[in-house]
Design a protein around this nucleic acid. Sequence first.
RNA 1: GGUGCGGUGGCGGAGAGGCUACGCAGCGGAUUGCAAAUCCGCGUACACCGGUUCAAAUCCGGUCCGCACCUCCA
Length: 441
Amino acid sequence: MSSKLKLYNTLTNKKEEFKAINPKHITMYVCGPTVYDFSHVGNARPVVVFDTLARLLRHDYDKVTYARNITDIDDKIIEAATNGNIAEITEKFARHYEDDMSALNAEKPDIVPKATDYVDEMIALISDLITKGHAYEANEHVLFEISTMDDYGELSGRKVEDLLAGARVDIAGYKREASDFVLWKPSSDAQPGWESPWGRGRPGWHTECSAMIKKNFGETIDIHGGGQDLIFPHHENEIAQSKCAHGGRNLANYWMHNGYLTVNGEKMSKSQGNFVTVHDLLKEFIGGGEDIRLCLLTAQYRQPVNFSKGGVIQAKKQLDKWYKTTQGVEPTVVSDAVLDALRDDLNTPKAIMELNQLSKNENKKGELLASAQLLGLLESTIEKRLMGSLKINPEKIEDKILERTTAKMDKNWKRADEIRDELNKLGIKLLDRPDGTTAWE
RNA sequence: GGUGCGGUGGCGGAGAGGCUACGCAGCGGAUUGCAAAUCCGCGUACACCGGUUCAAAUCCGGUCCGCACCUCCA
């Protein structure tokens, strides 16, 4: 390996050299969606970022197991399922999620665990925490008692005192401390629920990830990822549960958090209403999943990306260029310069710069293609890309070109230009070649 | 109030003490019936004020501004 992988670790707020627990098998877990609605572009950013990391890890290591969960039990889902049919809604949006993310060239993770398949494991974890004195039952709830943990707040850099001072939570009377969090809560007859030692109920939000990681990977994994907004409280609480259940051992050695997608400088979020769903964007940019992916990779993952359609268009232009220069080329090896950039905490903008350097070199087109593909780009062909976004029958285009060529021979420039404009409106550009033939794209 | 991240040319966006990426847009040229595409050339920017240094966008101190988390959130 020409360079070593370095990753920024939220746990230490430093860029660190990556040291695998077992270099023969890397383990990575990323928080996935709560499936109650379409995902917006902001939700897609971690998917693209960690997919890119997974691709790099697969290039550098023999075996990588990447898990991304699906939260299919949650109060929002219960709310969204007005007819009470939870499974209908979760299955529908899980499917949309899979479709949308694969349109962005994000490979399916090796494991896609669903929360509802891990209820037994969650109950076991909660029981364990009660036995070890870190959780207590109150008013049909089970709560994690943060005062029983010495280093609570290590990930987010928060002190328990500050939390309490700033707490704007409705403090439920049965909590011993305001920031104790729910591990288990009761369900009404109308709500979905599972039998447990504490009555019929459902798990709290943070519990599933801890249980899934334990079951699939064991106590400690290499990398745990997600959006910055998950640092607190979600990941902090995952750490609390898992460490207290596992004798203080780390849940993950490296915690990585991607920055937000912003719109006019502000976070894209559902509650603010400033979001664009991937589903809708793909309708607008037909066949443009790769354009969206590149757009998301133009900034380093910890920096914000200001989303705009102009940005997607710019990415599209970039890809069109690369597709042209690699037409008919077979991928060879991934460039060291691109690898160096990616191994430096996933510096995708620098990697993109290196791709541009490669594209200028006649002899490095195979490297360009192989390197771009490591980033999940240039995975299609120029022909498919064209056809995917075509709004007109190719034969009709040929007819028009023929008509225009005739007009040109008669020096009827007016008619020739009319035809060109007409096709232009349909997004088709004509290329008059020096030999007199006309190609289109 | 606490915690964290930022402010780079018209725009996007790396870099992080001297060699001043890269892309888009723009301008000039080659080419073209005119275009498009392509090729060649052109940009001395790093919020502000001090300091350290032979040398600072990069280090140190201060100021201003923005964003985010502390509540569900990728």
